[in-house]
Amino acid sequence: MPWISRTRLADMRARIEQLAEQRDEARTDARRAFGASARLAGGTLELDEQVADLRSRLTAAQQDLTAEKRRADRLQQRLDDAVGINGPAVDSGAMWQQRRADKPITVKGEQR
């Protein structure tokens, strides 16, 4: 076995201590990085869940809106039918109001 000088041995020990410190710092940095990535991953999962929830709520709201529009259209049609807006006389006189068959004829301010 070859002999190592005391100076060389001291240099090697110093280098070993330096490498051990670097190793410890690297482990600490790795733990911090792992913790940060775990927190980020947890936050990302939470955001994904929130986005999925919002999408489902949006879909439900859009379906409700469509249903309410259909209901309002049906009610408007019933109202139009009840007040006679959809009658043939209205359709025939849509462009020329003077030719409406249901328009009351007035003679000097009187209605017939």
Rank of each mutant, 00 (worst) to 15 (best):
M1Q: 09
M1T: 07
W3I: 15
I4E: 10
I4F: 03
S5K: 06
S5V: 00
R6K: 15
L9S: 12
D11W: 05
D11M: 10
R15G: 04
R15Q: 15
I16R: 09
I16W: 07
I16Y: 03
E17Y: 07
Q18M: 03
A20I: 02
A20L: 00
A20N: 08
T28Q: 14
A30M: 01
F34T: 15
F34E: 15
A36T: 11
L40Q: 11
A41S: 12
G42F: 03
G43E: 11
G43N: 08
T44F: 10
T44Q: 14
L45Y: 09
E46V: 04
L47G: 02
L47H: 10
E49M: 00
E49P: 01
V51M: 00
D53K: 14
L54T: 03
L54R: 08
S56C: 01
S56N: 03
R57E: 01
R57M: 00
A61I: 04
A61R: 10
Q62V: 01
L65G: 06
L65Q: 10
T66N: 01
E68K: 15
E68C: 12
K69L: 14
K69G: 07
K69S: 10
R71G: 00
A72F: 01
R74D: 13
L79W: 12
D80W: 07
G84K: 02
G84A: 02
I85L: 14
I85V: 12
N86Q: 05
P88D: 14
A89R: 11
A89D: 14
D91M: 09
S92I: 05
G93S: 00
G93D: 01
A94R: 12
M95W: 12
M95L: 15
M95A: 15
W96I: 15
R100E: 06
T106D: 04
V107E: 05
E110W: 09
Q111P: 03
Q111N: 11
Q111R: 15
R112Q: 14
